[in-house]
Amino acid sequence: MKRLYIFLIAAMTVYLSACEKNTEGPEETIHSLKLVESYEGSNEHIEIYSQSKTLQVGYNKIWIKILDKAQENLVQVDQGFWRPVMHMPSMQHSSPHSSLVKSTDPDFTFEGYVVFTMASDEKSYWELLVEYTYNQNSVTETIGLKVNSLPKRHKNVQSFAYENEEYTIALIDPKKPKMGSNIISAVLLKSSDHEKYEEVNGWEIDLDPRMPSMDNHDSPNNKNLIQKNDKGEYIGTLNLSMSGYWRLNLKIIDSHKNVIKGEKVTKENEKSSVYFELEF
């Protein structure tokens, strides 16, 4: 009898211990910015940082260090200004970008973002013009940048014209989409001269994600993108019920609730004229 009890207790122990969960630690991602480009100026050393080692078409958040020649300390500079320029054989143009502001991170001098609208190639190249005041001298440096193209079905930026202005919408997040709920964020900029860009505030971006390869089915409970903070970013909820190729159909709605770009997706109309793409 006693042995049976011992056995039973032992069996229960094994059973219960088997119930214990076996959790694997989440992947640790150490947030650190990567050096994209370093540039030797006449009196200073300039380093350009981004979240990944390379710049690519679309929204790129950029941090800039202006260091002394010894590359040890940040130098004290005043107000900065920047302008990305695309040099093509026949023409040159700028690209949507924020203003260059003093970085909130003490390790960096400036920060801002640039929305690259095309990639560099053999004939066309990007330059970033950076201006600032150092020791009461105005400094202008031109730094060559390489901008990589995106793989197919990863469209993350689109421009369109409306009332004599060019609007650009660019996807910020999700950078690594996952199944389930994702936070989606984007910036909306406009320009009348392709040189100066300003953020558009108080609008709304309607979101309708679809899977073109599965009869264009949608996903439920998405939330339109609206501005939730003072950074100008539009933020919403993007639900992806499976992995694969998704087309995020958009409608740009102004502050008077007028749809100024984009169409409803229906059986007849497969996609909106303004959209992003994801594939994962």
Binding site: S243, G244, Y245, F280
Partner: peptide
């Protein structure tokens, strides 16, 4: 699991649990 194979050859498989 469910894996769906897109008719466009180079697209990624669609997958869900």
């Amino acid at each position: 699991e469910m894996t769906m194979y897109p008719n466009q050859g180079d697209e990624k498989d669609m997958f869900m649990l």
